[in-house]
Structure formats: C-alpha cells, structure tokens
C-alpha cells in the first residue's frame, strides 16, 4: 500500500565516502581494526606460550620464526596494536564517564592515542633491543 505513495526513493544516510576523514573517526576505525588484529594475534600469543610448555624443540621452531623478519613484524604489530587499543580503550572509558566529550578535547585525546601508541611501541621495542644486547 505504501509503495504507491513512494514517488521517490527513501532518503539514505550519507555514505562513508562523502565524509571528510576526521581524527576521531579515524581513531574509531583503528580501534576496531586493532581489536581484530589482537583477536588474530592471540593465536600468536598462544603459539608462544604453548611452545614454551611443550619443550625445547617446539620453542626452537617458534623462536626461529619470531627472529625472522615476518616474525618481528608480527610481534611489533601486535605490541603496537595492544598499546593503541589500550590507549583507545582508556579514551572510551573517559568518554563513558562523560569527560572530554566536547570536540576540542575529544580531538586532543584522539591524537594522544595515535602519537602515544607509536611512541610507546617504539620505546618498548628499543627497550627490548637494549635488553637483548645486555644478554648477548
């Protein structure tokens, strides 16, 4: 019945492509993406911990991969994703509390999430490399 009166199609909500990318929007997307990365990365964590429990041979296989370039990339990606998701999560908890919800503050902590995650991930990596030189 209603179709008879619909002379033009119902209005659609704006599609993603017509939006200007804002930092809060980008960090929202990255928060979800890093969540998925950590979800899949949990398999890598499981491999590590299971290899340690299974014995020297299994650990050697894991260690060989972890020391390779793809392995290092995965570990760095995992560490960065963990830090980014954690900072993003803290940001969401702050917003849940009704704080810093206005645009200037919201933009500010969105930038803090991004810059903070890259800085902390690099710091963690350098700290790890430093410890490695101490051991060897």
């Amino acid at each position: 019945m209603s179709a008879r009166f619909r002379l033009r199609p119902r209005p659609l909500s704006p599609h993603l492509l017509i939006y200007r990318l804002t930092i809060t929007m980008a960090m929202s997307i990255v928060h979800r993406l890093t969540g998925v990365v950590l979800y899949l990365g949990s398999l890598f964590f499981a491999w590590w911990i299971v290899a340690v429990s299974a014995g020297q041979k299994s650990y050697a296989v894991f260690d060989l991969f972890a020391a390779s370039l793809p392995g290092k990339t995965i570990i760095f990606g995992f560490v960065w994703a963990l830090i980014h998701h954690m900072l993003g999560g803290i940001r969401h908890l702050i917003w849940d509390g009704g704080l810093w919800i206005n645009l200037p503050e919201a933009r500010g902590i969105a930038w803090v999430t991004l810059i903070g995650s890259v800085t902390l991930a690099l710091t963690a990596w350098i700290a790890g490399a430093f410890i490695r030189t101490l051991i060897q």
Binding site: V52, Q56, V79, L82, M86, G128, R132, I135
Partner: peptide, 21 residues
C-alpha cells in the same frame, strides 16, 4: 582489568626479548 595486566605482559615481553628457552 586488562589495562594493568597488559602493561605487566608488555613488561614481561621486553624483559624476555632475545632470551633462551
């Protein structure tokens, strides 16, 4: 709950980097 635990986990990863079995 994950926040302090993940920080501890990251500290463990850094401490263990390059270590043997």
């Amino acid at each position: 709950v994950n926040v302090p635990l993940a920080v501890g986990f990251l500290a463990l990863l850094i401490a263990l980097s390059g270590s043997n079995f």
